[in-house]
C-alpha cells in the first residue's frame, strides 16, 4: 500500500465532519488515523468514547508513548499537543499554543510528515482559523497526499480556504466524498 497513515485536522464544525468521515469508512479500514480536533482545554474525553461507540474502528484518546496501530483512530487529548515519533509511537507536549491552539494541527502534521513522508495523507476539514495550513503544505512538499474539504461543504470555510492558499496542489473534495476516496485507497 502506498500510504501508511492519515492525519486529520478539524476545528469549528469538526464534530459532525469527523463523524461523517469515521462512519463512512469501511469496517475493515486499516490505515491508522490520527486526529487533532480543536477543543476546550477543560473538556473530558467524551469525543473519543462517543466515536468509539458508533464506529467499528477502535477510536481512542492518544496516550503518551502509544504505538500507532492499524485499524485505530487516535484523538489528541484536550490541552496537549500530539506528535508522532520516528519509531511510530505517539507523544504529547504541553508547550506553547501554536496558532492559538493546543492541540495544534500544524504540530501533528509536521511531525507525522517527518516520519511517513510520501506515505502520509493529510486532511484539513472545517474550521475558523488557519491552523494546519502550513502543516499540510509540509506534507505535500514531502510527497504526501494533501486533501482539503471543499469550502462549500464546510460548516466554517476559513480553515479549508487558508489551507488552499498554502497548498494549491491539494485535492479538494466535498465532505461526503472523502470517506469513499479513502476507502478506495485502502483497498
Amino acid at each position: 500500500m502506498a500510504y501508511k497513515a492519515i492525519v486529520i485536522g478539524s476545528s469549528a464544525g469538526g464534530l459532525i465532519a469527523l463523524k461523517t468521515i469515521i462512519l463512512g469508512l469501511r469496517k475493515d479500514f486499516m490505515l491508522p488515523i490520527i486526529i487533532v480536533q480543536h477543543i476546550s482545554p477543560h473538556s473530558d474525553s467524551f469525543m473519543a468514547r462517543y466515536f468509539n461507540q458508533i464506529s467499528p474502528l477502535h477510536v481512542k484518546e492518544a496516550d503518551e508513548r502509544e504505538p500507532v496501530r492499524s485499524g485505530h483512530v487516535y484523538l489528541a487529548p484536550p490541552n496537549f499537543h500530539l506528535l508522532v515519533e520516528e519509531d511510530q509511537t505517539l507523544s504529547l507536549s504541553v508547550e506553547e499554543k501554536v496558532n492559538f491552539s493546543r492541540p495544534s494541527i500544524d504540530i501533528l502534521f509536521e511531525t507525522a510528515s517527518y516520519v511517513w513522508g510520501k506515505h502520509l495523507i493529510g486532511i484539513i476539514l472545517t474550521g475558523a482559523n488557519n491552523d494546519g495550513a502550513s502543516g499540510l503544505e509540509k506534507i505535500a512538499r514531502a510527497g504526501g497526499l494533501a486533501i482539503i474539504q471543499s469550502p462549500e461543504s464546510a460548516e466554517v470555510p476559513i480553515m479549508p480556504m487558508s489551507a488552499m492558499d498554502h497548498c494549491p496542489t491539494a485535492l479538494i473534495l466535498p465532505l461526503n466524498d472523502i470517506p469513499d476516496y479513502l476507502n478506495k485507497i485502502n483497498q
Binding site: 506528535l83 515519533e85 520516528e86 511531525t111 517527518y114 516520519v115
Partner: peptide, 8 residues
C-alpha cells in the same frame, strides 16, 4: 528525550 519535539 522524545525526538519529535526536539526536532521541531
Amino acid at each position: 528525550y522524545n525526538k519529535a519535539h526536539i526536532k521541531r
